[in-house]
Write a protein that binds this DNA or RNA. Sequence first.
RNA 1: GGUCCCAUCGUCUAGUGGUUAGGACGCUGGCCUCUCACGCCGGAAGCCGGGGUUCAACUCCCCGUGGGACUACCA
Length: 464
Amino acid sequence: MRTRFAPSPTGFLHIGGARTALFNWLYTRRYAGTFILRIEDTDQVRSTEESTRAILDAMAWLGLNWDEGPYFQAERVNIHREMVQKLIDTGNAYYCTCAPEELEAKRKKALAEGRKPKYDGTCRDRGLPRSSGSVVRFRGPEVGVTVVHDLIKGNISFNNEELDDLIIERADGYPTYNFAVVVDDAQMGITHVIRGDDHVNNTPKQIQIYEALGYEVPLFGHVPMILGSDRARLSKRHGATSVMAYQEMGYLPEALVNYLVRLGWSHGDQEIFTMEELVREFSLEAVGKSAAVFNPEKLLWLNQHYIMAYPAERLVESVLPFWEKRGFDVSDRPFVAKAIADLRTRSKTLVEMAEGGVFYFQEEVAYDPEAAAKFLTPEYAGHLVAVAEGIPGLAEYTKDGLESFLRALAEERGTKLKWIAQTLRVALTGKTVSPGIDEVMVTLGKERVIGRIQKAVAWIGAAS
RNA sequence: GGUCCCAUCGUCUAGUGGUUAGGACGCUGGCCUCUCACGCCGGAAGCCGGGGUUCAACUCCCCGUGGGACUACCA
């Protein structure tokens, strides 16, 4: 089995393309086939190297490696031209000199009159030679039926009379997509073409080209589209659509992969899959036929799940960049690891985690005005002093040891734990929301805790 | 307009002629609790409509309706 992912380098790898790549990759890995990456850059105007780079980066981030390529379609024009010539020689293609404006006018007119806006065949039988500005059209059969055998959608048949004589070589000598894709897929020995179902209507034309060229027709699998919340094709206005934007927003690749694979594919009631399970279980037969709406909330849930399930060391590696970006000193790895352990159950994204953990790294705790107004008051200052005084004599400076210490202290002082805990929280983190106060104290360590308490007490003195 | 595809809770989906129509996200009531989370227990929420076929249709067929894709010298 040989498959391929063939994006055009006219932008970043988007969510839809990523899922197509993922389906191809999973299917190929499952059957130990060869996965090929081909960049479809025959649009000389819109293709950029930067886009190619971005697509490769996104594939790597998602963990979708390829076995051959990347091949560049534009580097294969000689082969394409040779095949165009072959089609002309066999009478399966012809030169056409109709002007684009003229064609456009005819199209509009036909549409206005309620007729099919297909090429009228003006040059089909004129036997024109190549000339400046001429294009090459494929001569499609006028009668009969072409049926697409689709691995996902079943058999789809088209009346050939509905099909256009499409242009296979532009005036600039470059092949068009529908032609180049056939030549390349055939010559690269692609056996399974898995792509978005926006290509189904092109497929019968492509099949005719395969046949005219004497190639074996591959198997097709058209995966349904991904829609936005308004059921329109997913686009920027629905939020981030670039794969790498999700990395920047603090998503883990496993979460995106898991989310994407469940968009259109399912395996009973299972929601969480490892890559190994996916490679073992994925099948095109279990891919649904209908389009799916992209649901950011569920992706967020999965991300949270993976943040909690990630191996500690990998989570550290993943979060580090977000703190470094904020200019924090993260050289004390054991300390960073402890902070992450505190934060991991309360973060849906790495960005959220980095944000929620800034206090671990701040030399000077930034007090939230509202929190300070409520808890950093003379009324509560005594709690802080008592905590600071009690810490040095603590037998067990651990989560449990601190908890019993604080509970005992609350009782001793005739108050509830929550008042001491919240006051402490503001003194140590600057906020009223943070990981468990005992966890924070353990991670910060005695020195920092006492230092921060002293600063808070001083702050209260200065403020009142 | 034409061609093609699709249709189970708001969303992702299981289902393959006989089920109290299951799970997940989200929403929501409660428990837990030093805050926020995590976790646990519970709840509301769905077979697009109409005809057939059948003893029996979410399931099969047809017609509507709705949504989507394509209809480029883009891919």
